[in-house]
Design a protein around this nucleic acid. Structure first.
Ligand SMILES: [Mn+2]
Ligand SMILES: [Mn+2]
Ligand SMILES: [Zn+2]
Ligand SMILES: [Zn+2]
Lengths: 147, 147
DNA sequence: ATAAAAAACGCAACCAAGTTGCATTTATTT
DNA sequence: AAATAAATGCAACTTGGTTGCGTTTTTTAT
C-alpha cells in the first residue's frame, strides 16, 4: 500500500482533519472519490448512490469539500461541473492553488491536471489583469486512444 | 471609413453572402454585433431589444449565425454562453478555426481573442489526443484597469 | 409579379443544472 | 447526557436553454 492509497479509517480521519463532519454519506462520498480516480459530476454521484441521496445534499457536500480544500471544480467543455480530488501539495482548507488546466478523457472519464504551463503568466504578459481563468481539454487519453 | 467598418447596406449583404435569411430582426442583430464590439449574451440581446423579441428566436438566430461562420461561442467562467463576431481570416460558412482562448473584461465586457498561444499543440505534446478545448480568462482589460 | 417552397417566428410547454427556506435528523461539543 | 451546531430531505424556485407546432415572413422558381 503506497502513500497515495487510503483505507477506510484513513479517509474517515481525512474528513475530521479537514474539519468536515463525518457523516455516513460524506464518508462514502470521499471514498468514492478516492477509489474512482475520476472527476465526478453530480449525476455520477447520484447514480452511484442509486438516487438514495438527495441532490441538494450532494451539492452541499461538494461545497463543503471544496471549501475545505479536499476537492476542486473541473468544468468540462459542455458547461457541466465536475469535481476532482485536490493534491495535498496544492490545496489546504485555507486556499486552492489550481492555476492549471484539466484534461478529461471521453472514454474513461479520468481527469488529468495539466501542470506544465502556467497560463495566468502567459496572459498577464499581454497586458490583461486576469482575475479568473480556466482551461479545459477533452478527448482521449493515451490508454484509451490505443483501443 | 476603414475596411473594418460596415454601414447598414454592407451588413445586410453580409447576411445574404453567408446564406442567412435577411429578416428584420437578424439585420438588427448583426448590426448590434458590429456596433458593440463586445461579446454578447442572450440576456444582453434581449435587453437591447427591450424584450420585444422572443428568446427562442434569439437562440435560433445565434445557431444560424454560428453555423454560417459569422459568430462563435465564447464561454465565460460562470458557465454562461456569450457570442462574438468571427474574423474573416479564420472562419467561413464551412468551418470555424478558433484554436485560441478568449479574455472577457468584467467592466466593459469586451472580448479579446488570445491568438498568441496555440493551446492544442501544447496539450497534444503531452500525449493526449485532444478533440475539444477551451480557455477563458476574465478580469480587467488595459483600459478599464487604469480607471 | 406571382405562386410554391423553405425558412423564421412566437407561443407554450418542457428540461436540466443548480439554489433557497425551513423543519427534522444526525454529529459534535460541553 | 444535554446543549449546540451542522447535515439532511423535501418542496418550491430560478436560470439558461430546448422542442413541437401552427402562423408569418423570406426566398426561389415560374
Ligand atoms: Mn487540478
Ligand atoms: Mn475568437
Ligand atoms: Zn481514457
Ligand atoms: Zn474593459
Amino acid at each position: 500500500m503506497n502513500s497515495k492509497t487510503h483505507n477506510h479509517l484513513d479517509i474517515g480521519s481525512i474528513l475530521s482533519e479537514k474539519g468536515i463532519s463525518r457523516t455516513n454519506f460524506r464518508t462514502k462520498l470521499v471514498n468514492y472519490f478516492y477509489s474512482s480516480n475520476k472527476s465526478l459530476s453530480v449525476d455520477d454521484i447520484l447514480k452511484y448512490f442509486n438516487n438514495s441521496i438527495n441532490k441538494v445534499t450532494v451539492y452541499r457536500s461538494l461545497v463543503s469539500f471544496e471549501n475545505n480544500g479536499l476537492i476542486h471544480k473541473v468544468p468540462d467543455t459542455n458547461n457541466l461541473m465536475r469535481y476532482s480530488l485536490c493534491r495535498k501539495e496544492e490545496c489546504s482548507p485555507i486556499s486552492h492553488n489550481h492555476n492549471h488546466g484539466h484534461f478529461i478523457c471521453y472514454s474513461c472519464n479520468q481527469t488529468f491536471c495539466l501542470e506544465g504551463v502556467k497560463y495566468p503568466e502567459i496572459i498577464s504578459m499581454k497586458g490583461f489583469y486576469v482575475k479568473e481563468f480556466k482551461l479545459t481539454a477533452e478527448g482521449y487519453c493515451k490508454e484509451c486512444y490505443k483501443n
